[in-house]
Design a protein around this nucleic acid. Structure first.
Length: 362
DNA sequence: CAAGCGTGGCG
DNA sequence: TCGCCAAGCTT
């Protein structure tokens, strides 16, 4: 059906942005020149991650790695530790690889265009556009989940994602103001995050309420359309928290790639849908008397739920770590790159109290 | 192109 | 409690 709405104008969005822009740690002040390193690092952290979750990580990360040179020179374990708890750990591995590449290729200077950025590890279509626009003022489209939502509503695009993405990109490029591409990109994201929200959008406050086709039809909450995801099957396993008499815990490092790649963990069995707890002792790192903790740890990954039954055990001080494993003093536990699921396991073992964000208290 | 890849917050 | 999902990328 035809709808009697006008074309949206970038100027209306930018005027709204000038009054309502969020003050964010990685965002340059009005008139300030953005630091490409900070823009890039924040964009990587923000991939599939909320602003609230990113803020404290970003602050710590910048204090610890103030420049791309500092990041490139850091040991990978330090980078993984700084990322621990934030999730999607391939981002941290790619971030580190990207920093090294930027040092090698351009002596620490980021490429100032989409194509050059897109060639770097961890930088895809969205991030290349975002950094090109925000850090370098290039007329690039940065299409993320916010922009998908805003554009599909604005133009009532009923095609399912991700198929509709090229069309969405075209719409953004059509609207893009060549004098303020960086502000436009950020304005679109602020609009999506604060006004054009997934549920209960505040259409009455939207600078584009007049030209919005979905609002005209009253169908705004039905956009964007996307195929439903199938839920993964729950996997089960056993986790072994072994303490030595001198106050050290047995850990190992996961393989570099795949789930929680490069992160630290306590030894566990395989995680399988048909795991039999009766045989858990055979999966233990050492043969000894293990005590089963009553309540298992539940954790939900993106593609499957996990239920780990925790076993505790102790050994005398001269005990060496089995091959491929290590004993870490409790005092150093906070320095380990432990993902959230492993913090839950260690906490469930009842040996320590662990605060939020890897804060370990004895 | 679909699947793999974390986590915490919110309705 | 539970499903949804947030500034996506890689293979």
């Amino acid at each position: 059906m035809d709808v009697a709405v006008s074309m949206p104008r970038a100027a209306d969005l930018l005027a709204w942005y000038d009054r309502h822009r969020r003050a964010l740690p990685w965002r340059a002040g009005v008139g300030e020149r953005p630091d490409p390193y900070r823009v890039w690092a924040s964009e990587i952290m923000l991939q599939q991650t909320t602003v609230t979750a990113v803020k404290p990580y970003y602050e710590r990360f910048m204090a610890r790695f103030p420049t791309v040179a500092a990041l490139a020179a850091a040991p990978s374990e330090d980078v993984m530790q700084a990322w621990a708890g934030l999730g999607y750990y391939s981002r941290a591995r790619n971030l580190h690889a990207c920093a090294k590449a930027v040092m090698e290729l351009n002596g620490g200077r980021f490429p100032d265009n989409e194509e050059g950025l897109r060639a770097l590890p961890g930088i895809g279509a969205y991030t290349a556009g975002a950094v090109a626009a925000i850090a370098f003022g290039r007329p690039a489209a940065a299409v993320d989940g916010n922009v998908e939502r805003v554009m599909t509503r604005l133009f009532a695009i009923a095609d399912e994602l991700p198929g509709a993405r090229p069309l969405i990109r075209d719409k953004v490029l059509t609207l893009l103001p060549h004098d303020r591409p960086g502000d436009f990109a950020q304005a679109l994201m602020d609009l999506g995050a604060t006004i054009c929200t997934p549920r209960n959008p505040a259409c009455g406050l939207c600078p584009w309420r007049e030209p919005c086709q979905a609002r005209e039809e009253g169908t705004q909450e039905s956009f964007p359309r996307k195929a439903p995801k199938k839920a993964g099957q729950t996997r089960y396993g056993a986790a072994f928290v072994l303490t030595r008499a001198d106050g050290a815990i047995l850990l190992r490092t996961r393989p570099a790639k795949g789930l929680l790649g490069g992160m630290a963990e306590v030894p566990t069995s395989e995680w399988r849908a048909d795991y039999e707890l009766d045989g858990a002792a055979q999966d233990a790192p050492l043969a000894l008397r293990w005590t089963q903790v009553a309540q298992p740890v539940r954790h939900v990954f993106t593609h499957f739920p996990l239920e780990l039954t925790v076993f505790t055990g102790s050994v005398p001080t001269p005990t060496p770590a089995p091959p491929g494993m290590r004993f870490t003093p409790l005092a150093d536990l906070a320095g380990e790159p432990l993902p959230s699921v492993m913090l839950k396991v260690v906490e469930r073992a009842g040996l320590f109290r662990i605060g939020p964000k890897s804060g370990v208290h004895l």
